[in-house]
Computed example of a mutant assay.
Amino acid sequence: MDVGVRMKQQTLALAAGFERFGRQTRRSEFLSQMDVVVPWSELVALIEPHYPKAGNGRPPVGLERMLRIYFLQQWFNLSDPAVEDALYDSLTMRSFVGIDLGREPAPDETTVCKFRHLLERHGLGRKMLAVVNGHLERHGLKIGTGTIVDATILHAPSSTRNKQEQRDPEMHQVKKGNQWYFGMKAHVGVDADTKLIHSAEATAANVADNRVLADLLHGEETEVWGDQAYQGKTEVIVARAPQAVDRTHRQYRTKLVCYPAIREENRVKSKTRSRVEHVFALIKLKFGFAKVRYRGLEKNRNRLLSLCALTNLLTARHHLMAVAGQSCA
């Protein structure tokens, strides 16, 4: 037999999934952890009142299955067609969702798109964040009295080569330093101790960071940290959180004068304020949300809020895994 033909033949181990040299990949390890830490029953109960019920037509796909597919999109930055292809291509993802291709096909991209629109239409991203934070609080991770506020730019396509022959009208451009950016801003309020996101908002990129400051505070703060974009907003902070001390950075230099004392104060404050950058690293680098996928602010706001909930679960995964292990022991 020709060597080339022999190379194409599949071994019984490969066909049955019992390869001799198989090992757990990072993706499978990550999904096995998320399978444990995500509060599936609570999130399903949140969405269930809005989900289609079985009737005379084709029965809807199981709600938890669609939620798992939606989370795969967020974790791996997949479009609707891409997540359908990934389910056919990846045994690990199919196992996570619970799809057996010997019995049924994976949900198509239209079904995935309709489920995503259902979440957007009912604003369930924000409610998901509240459910997850409630779940974390019941497991010993409570939002404290220190909040770090910050914002980051998420890019949007600036090309006009589309059906409308125009850029997204809800996105805007902004100049940062000597560079122009086009897109939206993700504003977050993060707990200073646990690095858990308790508040988030999305605006066009040209909206000043301090415009949404009040929306990022939960009201029980005793300290608020932020960069120089939030200086001079002490009245806003106190109005929202009467007991809060303003620890935002101050301008330490002008064109003519530099103030070393203020610069040193900013440096000390940065030891706490910089923790918010870890959150942005997860959202933008780990989960790939550095560029918007959808047109319009509302769709991207819902994605941001649901991704904030998943970011909190990833941040707290070791604690939740330990709690799960103790409960099973």
Rank of each mutant, 00 (worst) to 15 (best):
G232N: 07
N77H: 09
Q9Y: 05
K114Y: 09
A244H: 02
Q73I: 10
R293T: 07
R116G: 05
D89L: 05
H319R: 09
K291D: 07
P157N: 13
I153E: 07
A82F: 05
A156W: 04
N302P: 01
M184Q: 14
D191A: 05
D150V: 03
N77M: 09
T272G: 00
I47L: 10
G134E: 13
E64H: 03
G4K: 07
S28I: 05
A200S: 09
K142P: 02
K185R: 12
R103W: 08
K255P: 00
T254A: 01
V83M: 02
V236W: 03
V44K: 09
D2Q: 06
P242I: 14
E165A: 15
A322K: 05
D2W: 11
T272V: 15
D215C: 07
Y51C: 05
V3D: 12
T222C: 03
R65G: 11
K127M: 13
H50K: 04
L87W: 02
R250L: 12
N210L: 06
I69P: 00
A16M: 14
R293P: 00
D191S: 10
N162H: 04
H198E: 12
V236K: 12
M1E: 12
S158C: 10
G183V: 05
N162F: 00
L320C: 06
G226Y: 09
E221K: 10
L217N: 05
A239F: 02
V37Q: 06
L304W: 04
H50E: 06
M1F: 04
V188G: 02
R295L: 09
L141N: 10
C258M: 04
G123E: 08
G17C: 08
Q179I: 15
A322Q: 14
M1C: 08
A156T: 04
L256W: 08
N133K: 01
V212G: 07
K175M: 11
R211W: 07
V323W: 08
F71R: 11
R167E: 08
F21E: 14
R303T: 14
L124T: 08
D2V: 10
V212P: 00
I283D: 03
V83N: 07
M93P: 01
V238C: 10
V149F: 00
R65Y: 06
F287Q: 14
R121E: 15
V207T: 11
M171D: 13
G219I: 08
G177Y: 01
Q243H: 12
Y181E: 14
A15P: 03
L213H: 00
V323E: 15
I47V: 15
T248K: 01
Q231F: 07
G232Y: 08
L12W: 14
